[in-house]
């Protein structure tokens, strides 16, 4: 999976990638930083859910429970990865890898700062590709194979139903996500995320594209299979959906991929709609603003999870196809008309 990435970086750079050592540093920093964010996010979510539900949340391991993710990871790593007799073992092994791979690869295009903010000419993004938004959509749609293969290979009906739901849900909301981003692409005149953020130096796209932003948020919740759209793993109906039969670090990998997905969707929303690195102060503060905006969106994910009950399956489908899709299409039509007229 890393091979397309490398080819993209050599073939399709919009702004200069910088020398090799810069690329390596960027890759390591992004990877290390965001992978640390995921366990922190798990801790934050459990603490906040506790507050939302008038209880304490994890508070025993380390100060304020901060070491709880470490304890969880140690537990997961040391657990056995079991496979049911009806399962397809090799497929159960690669399914979490697909999930985590697609989530991590999407991180590469997130712009964290203005090109040249820290000296040099290179963009503060893993890679700046001319197909930015499509790259995000491509790996978003490939992420589905992780869920589907995981559920199918488990040889369990709960898992299978969960992965079938994931299939239908992801395909349905992929369309809405694509169309909601299309309005921004038309307004910015580019698919590159760096260009899109650069086009927001006066006004963030959330103002002219507020419909697109809302559609992206709702569809993003569904894409990440988060409550209220967590039908693929609806615990009241399907035990845990596609990951029911997964134990140990295989489950941990699915879990990590899910939280990475939240971070990726927040980052894309922050870059595309909330002005990315733009904010008051000098240019080198860009990454701070970016992370702040991402944090706000991530908190929204948690807040919504604690507030809204899960949708029924038919409600989910009619929301996607009968409300979001026509709205997004209308948004694109209006945007295109306005861009041509003005």
């Amino acid at each position: 999976m890393s091979s397309p990435l490398a080819a993209v970086s050599s073939a399709a750079e919009v702004s200069s990638p910088g020398p090799l050592w810069v690329q390596l540093v960027k890759a390591v920093v992004i990877f290390a930083l965001v992978l640390q964010l995921a366990p922190t996010l798990v801790w934050l979510e459990r603490r906040l859910l506790g507050r939302f539900q008038s209880r304490l949340g994890p508070n025993r391991v380390g100060p304020a429970g901060l070491l709880q993710p470490v304890a969880d990871v140690i537990k997961l790593v040391s657990k056995e990865s079991s496979t049911p007799t009806t399962a397809v073992p090799w497929m159960m092994a690669i399914a979490p890898v697909i999930s985590i791979g697609t989530a991590v690869l999407t991180l590469a295009i997130i712009p964290f700062g203005a090109p040249g903010a820290y000296g040099g000419e290179f963009a503060l993004a893993g890679i700046d590709v001319s197909i930015g938004i499509l790259y995000f959509l491509a790996f978003g749609s490939l992420a589905f194979y992780g869920l589907l293969l995981g559920g199918w290979a488990s040889g369990s009906k709960y898992s299978f139903l969960g992965s079938m739901r994931a299939a239908a849900q992801l395909v349905s909301y992929e369309v809405a996500i694509g169309l909601s981003l299309l309005g921004v692409a038309i307004a910015a005149g580019s698919l590159s995320l760096v260009d899109i953020v650069a086009a927001q130096d006066k006004v963030w796209f959330v103002v002219p594209q507020v419909v697109g932003f809302l559609i992206f948020l709702v569809a993003g919740f569904a894409e990440a299979a988060r409550p209220p759209f967590d039908l693929p793993e609806a615990d009241a109906e399907l035990v845990a959906g596609y990951n029911t039969e997964f134990g140990g670090m295989r489950f941990g990998t699915f879990f990590l991929a899910e939280y990475l997905e939240i971070i990726v969707i927040s980052a894309v929303a922050a870059a595309v709609f909330l002005g990315g690195w733009h904010g008051p102060g000098p240019e080198f503060l860009g990454p701070t603003w970016m992370f702040l905006k991402m944090a706000v969106l991530v908190l929204l994910f948690i807040w919504v999870r604690a507030t809204v009950p899960r949708l029924r399956y038919d409600q989910l489908m009619s929301l996607g196809w009968k409300i979001l899709l026509p709205l997004a299409t209308l948004n694109v039509l209006v945007t295109a008309t306005l861009v041509v007229l003005l």
């Binding site: 139903l161 079938m164 239908a168 109906e237 038919d314 489908m317």
Partner: peptide, 11 residues
């Protein structure tokens, strides 16, 4: 139909 209406009848 499978992705849209058909699958909506799962539950």
């Amino acid at each position: 139909a499978t992705a849209g209406t058909g699958a909506s009848r799962e539950d």
